[in-house]
Design a protein around this nucleic acid. Structure first.
Lengths: 239, 239
DNA sequence: GTAATAGTGTCTCTTAGACAATATGCC
DNA sequence: GGCATATTGTCTAAGAGACACTATTAC
């Protein structure tokens, strides 16, 4: 090991997801410089390890949070390391390592920042586990892995609440799970499990009003026992 | 992003596990050079990205496989990326990134290789999710995370078979699960679930003999549907 | 026969799915 | 009242836990 060998470049890339208009969306930026100029890519950049420089990341997670803030103007809601990609061929220039993260944000929290080194930035809808453009580098692969991870975690954790606004109804939460799992869930069972898992709290006296019976508003109950949602994996009623 | 910024060093470290004498063990090497000289550490080393050099890794996983082979003399049985650790403080010399992997091997497959850059190498028993020495760098943390991942995966996958020899009895498999989960499992339920999950295959006509009824030998049935073991998470009978 | 471990059958209990029934707002 | 959605209750079915039972070897 060490210090004097030739080094790879190290990037941090983030798949930032939100839910808007009943659709899962991911934030992509258009690259302003080669390679892959004018291709869309996950937001990201090099880890800044020079203590003397104006931008300095103490940890990988700091680098990810910095990118997230730069792109969305939002403080971190949910951020998780996905996995690390590294090879001699993923960047035509040289051996690179990309530490990929994925983030979940409520749509309302975000103000997409154009500018910086990205020529453009916008939300792309996800359909069939992908985005309808060719992405730079191996970012289609990273995005695919991120979606897989999200869906896997939706199965057994309360992770989906991070896509919703602070206050939501149980029906809205159920619709979110149904959408992400691509399955219809039974109303009664869903509510039973949500309550048993203790992942949400009633906001006393707050209701969503409409032309019908008002719905109780709930908020995320932070730190339940391990955030486990389903004591059994959900026997889903596919199709 | 790029190419001309100061770069961190990139290492690959591996937590190599096996099961021997009914104990989970991890392979550690004693460091022959500073920093942390004479401390025990996870096997690992720098990723070799110089195409001209005698050792060249095309991917991160190649680097992990190379380390695994160097330390154990065994070809890869089970290898999975754990997570990536990176900060300015985990190595006193500089900003480093360590891509951590974890590997499972049957004890018999391994021939521990002393020498190379490690002064010494040996198995350490794991007790209370740790090893009874101070480790170099943040390796105690990495080891802890690896054990957590292993235990989490034992809950719902067939991963534990990779710790056993090619042929094993269902009782041996059950004892392994009981040991890793720190729980007593019911024989009947366990066998039912193993059979339903289709994770093992009978080896026709092969039995483990003893001073009692011989036990059918089984082998791992590669590639079951997603390798999921427990349709429900095991309601364990703790204590 | 006994001892010891392998392997099976059956009953119960939990919990998710199905779906009916009730509640509460607006018009 | 009628409509729409929220919320609850009840029955059923799948699967795990408990535990007793049978099977097969060595002695």
């Amino acid at each position: 090991m060490s210090i004097n060998y030739k080094k790879p470049s190290v990037m941090v890339d983030i798949a930032i997801f939100t839910l808007h208009e009943k659709t899962l969306k991911v934030l992509l930026v258009k690259r302003g410089i080669p390679p892959f100029q004018d291709h869309w890519a996950l937001p990201g950049g090099g880890v800044r390890v020079d203590q003397e420089a104006s931008i300095f990341d103490k940890t990988l997670e700091d680098a990810a949070k910095r990118e997230l803030l730069e792109e969305t103007g939002a403080k971190t809601h949910y951020l998780e390391q996905l996995r690390t990609y590294g090879s001699d061929s993923r960047d035509p220039r040289e051996w690179t390592v990309s530490v990929a993260y994925f983030a979940l944000l409520p749509y309302a929290a975000i103000q997409v920042q154009s500018g910086s080194d990205a020529a453009d930035a916008r939300w792309w809808s996800i359909k069939d586990n992908r985005v309808p453009v060719q992405l730079a580098f191996d970012h289609q692969q990273i995005l695919h892995d991120a979606i897989q991870r999200l869906q896997a975690k939706v199965e057994y954790t309360a992770i989906a609440v991070h896509l919703l606004p602070n206050a939501f109804t149980l029906t809205e939460l159920q619709r979110t799970y149904e959408y992400l799992l691509e399955a219809k869930l039974d109303k009664s069972s869903f509510r039973r499990r949500v309550h048993n898992a203790g992942i949400v709290k009633i906001i006393p006296g707050q209701f969503r009003e409409g032309s019908n019976r008002p719905a109780q508003l709930y908020c995320f109950a932070k730190k339940t026992q391990k955030n486990v949602f389903f004591p059994r994996s959900a026997d889903r009623n596919l199709g």
